[in-house]
Design a protein around this nucleic acid. Structure first.
Length: 436
RNA sequence: GGACGGGUGGGUGAGUGGCUAAAACCAGCAGACUGUAAAUCUGCCGCUCCUUGCGGGCUACGAAGGUUCGAAUCCUUCCCCGUCCA
C-alpha cells in the first residue's frame, strides 16, 4: 500500500464519522490518519467480539459496518474473537454475573461467527485473531502485573458495577478482570483504533490507558450507538427477543424491519445502510412534506437491508410478498410446508411430520389415527409453544384453515383423506399442511 | 467468624396457614382499529387430557425433610445473596 492509495484525511474522516457516537479523542484520530497518509502505513483498527451466542443480529452489524468503513479506506481491519474473554463474560450492562461459557460452547460459537461476519467484512482483507493466542499464555505473574496498572476505585466507578453494588447484586472478582484482560488484547495487537458500541466505552478507555502503561501510544476510540430493537425501546438483543438475525430468511427479515416504529427507521437508515447523511435528510424531508408515505420509506429501508444480506432478487420478492400478505391481506405464495404421513409399523401406527425432509415430530399409536386435534398438531410441530397456547389462539379467533376461521378448540385434522391445508396461526404465521 | 436482612411466575414485586395457578405493573399473545408502525380499546397469559366445561389431572413460590385435614406462608437442616462488625 502506497501513500497515494489513501484518500485525503478530511474525506476519510467524514466517511468514518457517519453514524459514530463518539470519537475519543478526535484530534488524535485525525493525527493518526495524517501520519498514516504520509507514511503510507495503514492504521490497525480492531473490533473485539465475545462469541457468547452463535447468532449475530442487526445490532452487531452496526459496529461491524464501521470496521468495514475503515477497511474501505484502506486500513487494516482486525476482527478479534474473544474466545478467552468470553469465558469470563463481559460485565457491561449486565445486572448479574453470568455463568461462564465452556470451551466447547465458545469454540462452536466462534466458528459460526466468522461465516456471518464475512457477510459484511471482506475476508481477504481481514485479519482474524483469537485472544486466547496471548491470554491463555499469560502467567500468574503477568496477570498480577497487569492488574497492578489499574485502581479498584476506578473500576468501581463504572455504572454497571456501581448499580449492582447499590442494588445488592453480587459481583464476582473475576468480572473485574474482564476489562484488564481485554486491555491486554489492545496491547498485543498494538492497535491504533478500537471500535465498539457506546456501552463499551468504559472498557475501551481502560484498554487505551493500559496500552500507555505498556509504553504504547494509546489507541483512539470510536464508539457507535446501540441499535434499538423492534420494540423501539430497548437495545436489540437476542434475550429480549427484539432482534433481527442476519441469517434469517428474507421474508422474516423484511417483516421485522417493517414492524419497527416509524421514528426508528431513520436511525436504521443511518446505522445499517450505506445511504449518505444527505440522502437520509432528503428522504426525511420527503416524508414530512407528505410526498413520500412513511410506509414506503420503511419498505425501501427493509428492501435495502434485506438486499445487503440476501441479494437484490430475494429482497424484491420479500417486498412483494409483504405487500401481498399484509397490504392486500392475502396468503403468501411461499410458506413453510409440513407433510404428515401415517405408516404401518409392527406395534401399530406411526404419524410422522416432515418439514423439508426433516422429521419434526412423530408419534405412535396402537390403532390407525383417524384424526388429530389441530391444537396438538400445532404444538407438536413447534409452531406454538404449547397446546394451551394453541387453544388460546383458536379461542381468540386467530386460527384459520383454508381461509375459514376455526373457533372450536377441539377441531381436528382428518388424517384419512389426502389433502393440503393452508393454515394461518396468529397474525403473521402461515403454513401449509399436506396429508398424504 | 458474628449480627441483621433477603431468595415468589419471563422481569419488577405483593402475599405470612385454606377464598392462591398466586395481587399489581411490565413484557408477551390474540382480536378490533390501522400502514403487520405507534397510540388506543377488549380479552388471554404454567403444563396437559377430554365430551372445551366457571371440566379433570399434574407441576410451581432457593433445596431437602417435617408439622397440619390443608403450607409460598409454621418448624428443621442445607444452599445462595447483601449490609454492618471483625
Amino acid at each position: 500500500m502506497t501513500s497515494n492509495s489513501f484518500k485525503p484525511v478530511a474525506e476519510q474522516l467524514a466517511y468514518l464519522k457517519k453514524g459514530a457516537a463518539e470519537i475519543i479523542p478526535e484530534p488524535e484520530l485525525r493525527a493518526s490518519l495524517e501520519k498514516s497518509l504520509k507514511s503510507g502505513t495503514p492504521l490497525r483498527v480492531y473490533l473485539g467480539v465475545d462469541p457468547t451466542a452463535p447468532d449475530l443480529h442487526l445490532g452487531h452489524t452496526v459496529v461491524l459496518r464501521k470496521l468495514k468503513h475503515f477497511q474501505d479506506m484502506g486500513h487494516t481491519a482486525v476482527f478479534l474473537i474473544g474466545d478467552f474473554s468470553a469465558m469470563i463474560g463481559d460485565p457491561t450492562g449486565v445486572s448479574e454475573t453470568r455463568p461462564p461459557l465452556t470451551r466447547e460452547q465458545v469454540d462452536a460459537n466462534a466458528k459460526t461467527y466468522l461465516a456471518q461476519v464475512f457477510k459484511i467484512l471482506d475476508p481477504a482483507k481481514t485479519e482474524v485473531r483469537y485472544n486466547s493466542e496471548w491470554l491463555s499464555k499469560l502467567s500468574a505473574e503477568a496477570i498480577v502485573r497487569l492488574c497492578s496498572h489499574y485502581r479498584l476505585a476506578r473500576m468501581l466507578e463504572r455504572e454497571d458495577f456501581r448499580k449492582r453494588l447499590d442494588e445488592g447484586q453480587p459481583i464476582s472478582v473475576h468480572e473485574l478482570l474482564y476489562p484488564l484482560l481485554t486491555a491486554y488484547d489492545a496491547v498485543s495487537l498494538k492497535s491504533d483504533v478500537e471500535l465498539g458500541a457506546t456501552e463499551q466505552k468504559f472498557n475501551l478507555l481502560v484498554h487505551r490507558e493500559i496500552q500507555r502503561e505498556y509504553g504504547l501510544p494509546g489507541q483512539a476510540i470510536l464508539t457507535m450507538p446501540i441499535l434499538v430493537g423492534l420494540d423501539g425501546q430497548r437495545k436489540m438483543s437476542k434475550s429480549l427477543g427484539n432482534y433481527i438475525g442476519i441469517t434469517e430468511p428474507p421474508a422474516d427479515m423484511f417483516g421485522k424491519i417493517m414492524s419497527i416504529p416509524d421514528d426508528l427507521m431513520w436511525t436504521y437508515y443511518e446505522l445499517v445502510t450505506d445511504r449518505t447523511p444527505q440522502q437520509i435528510t432528503g428522504l426525511k424531508q420527503e416524508v414530512s412534506s407528505g410526498s413520500l408515505h412513511p410506509m414506503d420509506a420503511k419498505m425501501r429501508l427493509a428492501e435495502e437491508i434485506v438486499s445487503g444480506f440476501h441479494g437484490p432478487d430475494p429482497a424484491r420478492k420479500a417486498a412483494e410478498n409483504f405487500q401481498r400478505v399484509f397490504r392486500d391481506r392475502e396468503i403468501p405464495d411461499e410458506m413453510e410446508e409440513f407433510t404428515v404421513t401415517c405408516t404401518r409399523v409392527p406395534e401399530g401406527w406411526h404419524v410422522t411430520w416432515v418439514d423439508l425432509s426433516v422429521v419434526v415430530w412423530s408419534e405412535k399409536s396402537a390403532t390407525h389415527p383417524k384424526a388429530i386435534k389441530w391444537t396438538r398438531a400445532l404444538a407438536g410441530i413447534k409452531q406454538v409453544v404449547s397446546v394451551a397456547e394453541a387453544e388460546r389462539i383458536v379461542k381468540q379467533k386467530g386460527f384459520e384453515v383454508n381461509g375459514q376461521l376455526v373457533i372450536d378448540p377441539s377441531a381436528k385434522l382428518d388424517l384419512t383423506v389426502p389433502a393440503a391445508y393452508k393454515i394461518r396461526v396468529g397474525k403473521k404465521k402461515f403454513l401449509r399442511i399436506v396429508v398424504e
